[in-house]
Design a binder for these strands. Structure first.
Lengths: 218, 218, 218, 218
DNA sequence: GATGAATGAGCATTCATTCAT
DNA sequence: CATGAATGAATGCTCATTCAT
């Protein structure tokens, strides 16, 4: 199985097979509403109206409003970090065609951008609410530190040993890499989603920036 | 007037001279509460209690809850972008000791970090709420596009002409610069504020990253 | 047929032969719940869960929640007063071995205590709810005034004619007799059901009290 | 100070001086409603309507519906047992004109009957709800066992030593005394409050019954 | 007959805001 | 200027009951 395959696999929506029609409608309406007004400013009555169900129906499927939030956010966040979750992730990277750090982050970036494009409303909710709900922050922090961070770290160390990238602490490398990519994605979808974007080209530029900075000496 | 002077000038709290004791207490309590729970999830009665005033007193000073939000956020945001607001800003940069883009962003970064340290709760509120309130977003967008962006653009073009930085669109350069810095500041205060940070050194690393990337070929 | 026989007959559970398994489980669960939390504070969904049936099943067997209450309370109350209901009741008493009022109330007391022991939860529900439901109070009042009261009255008059008890109005005699007995039974089950009780002895004391008061001059 | 004086003193409504007009109206409406339909079946909106206030006003004065219940019931129950609460209670009894147990319970009975007449709705609520609320039962049990029971016990022992009443356990004597009186009061107000009652005469009969039973040998 | 999803009225409680004092 | 009682709409959630399967 080639890299592109297993990555794509994780992205596809193979979940929610047990979800009823109403349940899906409620989730959609809730995503809409939370995303637009924020969790605390959204009322369950509005969500019910938008979903075309009675208010009581929401609470038959989700015990509380907060549980509805978690039902929206958890699977998407899980899928977002899923590629890093795979056991063989780091190994695959080393043995793969990704000869350079550059290639690696380019693939990750393009692939995760695709995911963000599809799931932006949910990710927006996540970003907004993670600051206020322990039930959201704690599992995510665990997920991140125990899996994403560990795997990413090994990969960085691998390329540092190859002498390809500087010897800063891996978390610093990670932060720089991540914030450069996120610094594109966030405004792209949050502030200027109506603008036309050539994502392919932008990502190439960002990757280039990550590797060589702004001086252009490459 | 040297650069350091006018910058410091803008930071100092020369405002709020007309504010009564109660008013200040209300603002402090509101910052606390909004920052901790978010605007929508904070109740005016809780703020009143925390401020040690009667519920009605808040509405004597701020017509609505939203006006209270604006009263908190507006002056701080204004001060945050103030350096770019000054007419002579760009000119000063060109003629100043900042021979290199590197020096320029280093000063900006350190200086704005200082500001963020002091004002983080307010800026957190701003970041959280800008997505939901037109009254917040519109003036800020105007401020940004008409002043900050324009000035920053000129500066970038200046250094591009000097051949110091690559010929990407100025907004791309800006985004890369900004997100590298913000990508340090945000986690630093939002997620790991209890950790000990050597900000001076971190910023030097970030500036170096912005200029030369991760390859270390410099 | 001796007295003890017909009395025992009425107590035995010869009813509910047409009741399905589910129906019985629902009734049991409802008795549990109503008794513990009161009728109004009990929810049908909780009862359904406790009974191990679907929410809808309750309403297949009992049109409304109130009908469920009546189905619980009515047969038990009927059985409680049943001894007084029997046509030959008074006559049997006169011709029976009960030479004295004392013997009569002793048998009734012991016998009804036995019944209360078995059915306390249901009787508790009855006592709690009779004040609030006309559907409960009216048939009971009718039952009581037309049967229990009439029969009891004749018995009291019988013993008054024999000069065995004072010539107060029969209802006063009845009230004194009843409240002395009930004044034992109620706290015994309601407040101190965990304490060990020697019911036999207690009833003897109560009967003695009813007959001779507290002076002990007998 | 004669006995009748200190007893009357305790009965009079010297409380609630700090209660606002609205607060009193809410309490009255709540007593009405709770008494008529029971606590759980009463809605705060109905109480608000009956009291002529907004629903929110109820919750400004009483944090929860249950607190409203306690605010109604606690002071009345306290006043009901107040006579037994007084330090000198037992001593006064011994040295007083109450030469006989009979006189003592006659005064108590008449006096408490008067109280019940005025406060019946509240006492009805208490009786109904004590079974379901620990917050109600626990303080009352404490009050009763630590004060009422102790004092009453001493008085009973006093008259037992005088050879005036039988040597049953004091709590049995108490139960018999109390249930005879309560057995009059409860039906009198609960079931037949519309009937005309000669309370004076009835109580004399009850006291006589308590002392001498139904045989009339006195 | 039994289920349990669906309903929408109703619930206790909270809210931002007003206004008489 | 400050208060805090009063408001009534709105909130998240529960309820008894219905009905298609």
């Amino acid at each position: 199985m080639s890299n592109s395959e297993w990555i794509n696999d994780l992205i596809n929506d193979h979940d929610a097979p047990t979800m009823s029609d109403k349940q899906r409608k409620i989730l959609e309406a809730a995503i809409d509403t939370f995303s637009e007004k924020g969790f605390a400013a959204s009322s369950t009555s509005e969500i019910a109206k938008k979903a075309g169900v009675a208010e009581g129906t929401i609470f038959r499927h989700f015990k509380t409003k907060k549980e509805l939030l978690l039902a929206i956010v958890t699977p998407t966040v899980a899928k977002f970090v899923a590629p890093f979750f795979i056991k063989s992730f780091a190994k695959e990277v080393f043995e793969s065609e990704y000869e350079h750090y550059e290639d690696f982050i380019r693939v990750i970036a393009k692939n995760r951008l695709e995911f963000v494009r599809k799931q932006f409303p949910v990710l927006k909710i996540f970003i907004q609410e993670i600051a206020f709900h322990d039930e959201l922050r704690e599992p995510f922090q665990k997920l991140f530190t125990e899996h994403v961070y560990q795997k990413f770290k090994k990969i960085i160390e691998h390329f540092q040993e190859k002498g390809e990238i500087v010897s800063l602490p891996p978390e610093t490398i990670m932060r720089m890499t991540a914030s450069s990519i996120i610094g594109y994605i966030l405004p792209r979808f949050l502030l200027f989603s109506d603008k036309e974007w050539n994502d392919e080209k932008e990502i190439d530029q960002i990757v280039s920036f990550i590797m060589y900075g702004l001086t252009g000496k490459r």
